[in-house]
Every structure is written in structure tokens, then in C-alpha cells.
Amino acid sequence: MPAAGLRERVLEEAGRCAYCGFCEAACPTLRHGPHRGYGPRGRVEIARRLLEGLSKPTGEAVASLFTCLLCGACRVKCPLGVDVPLVVRGARSLYLAGVLGGRVGARPRLRG
């Protein structure tokens, strides 16, 4: 998919999130990470903000997107059926293609 089409598709999916947080308890990475960005709700919101151009990528944001296991457990719990792996995969591709405002150094962190 060309970058413009992908951006639109990912943004549409990310925009469906109502931010209820029902997905978080299912996420295997959230409780090992230092903050909400290591869970599905956080990843979708970070992707949305990057794709809408509200913010440039930061080290924390990139670590958040690239620590997702793409297991899809969150999709099962989401009342609106948001396809979180699609959002994360799409945001990663766009970031690596350099269309989200450049590349930054990222170092994933464990909680504590």
C-alpha cells in the first residue's frame, strides 16, 4: 500500500479508539513496561498523534510502538473491535519510511 493510503487507513483505525482501557489487562507487555505507552491503548493513541502530525516521534514513543508483540489479545477485549496490530504495524512502517517526521534513537525500558 502506498504511504498515503496506509496513513489514512491506520489513522481511521486509530481514530476509532474510545480510550476506555478495556484492552490493557490483556496486554502481555504493559505490566513490564514503565508506562501506559507499553499497552494497546497507549500505542494506538501515540500512533494517532504521530499520524495526525500533533507531535514528532520521541524515543519513548518509538520504543512503545516497537515493543508490541502483535499478539492481538487486545483486539478480543476491545468493545469496538479496534485492530491494534494493524495500527502498530502501519505506524512502524510509516515511521521507518521516515514520513512521520524523521528517526530518533529509542531504547526500550523495563518497569522500575
Binding site: A18, Y19, C20, G21, P34, H35, R36, G37, R41, G42, E45, I46, R49, L50, S55, T58, G59, E60, A61, S64, R109, R111, G112
Partner: peptide, 30 residues
């Protein structure tokens, strides 16, 4: 060190609610 985050994209994750309300001003840190 590990108990404070001030990355603006992460701070924004703590500034939104499920009914569409958002913080008028982002916090400085979580």
C-alpha cells in the same frame, strides 16, 4: 530516575478520558 516520565507523547496518554474530554494544558510529568 525510573519513576518519572516527561516525554510529551507519553504525558499526553494521561490527559484524555473515554468521554472525549481532554486536558486543556498537558501536565509537566507523570
Amino acid at each position: 530516575e525510573g519513576k518519572v516520565v516527561d516525554d510529551p507523547l507519553v504525558v499526553a496518554l494521561y490527559s484524555r478520558a473515554p468521554d472525549g474530554l481532554e486536558a486543556e494544558e498537558l501536565p509537566e510529568a507523570v
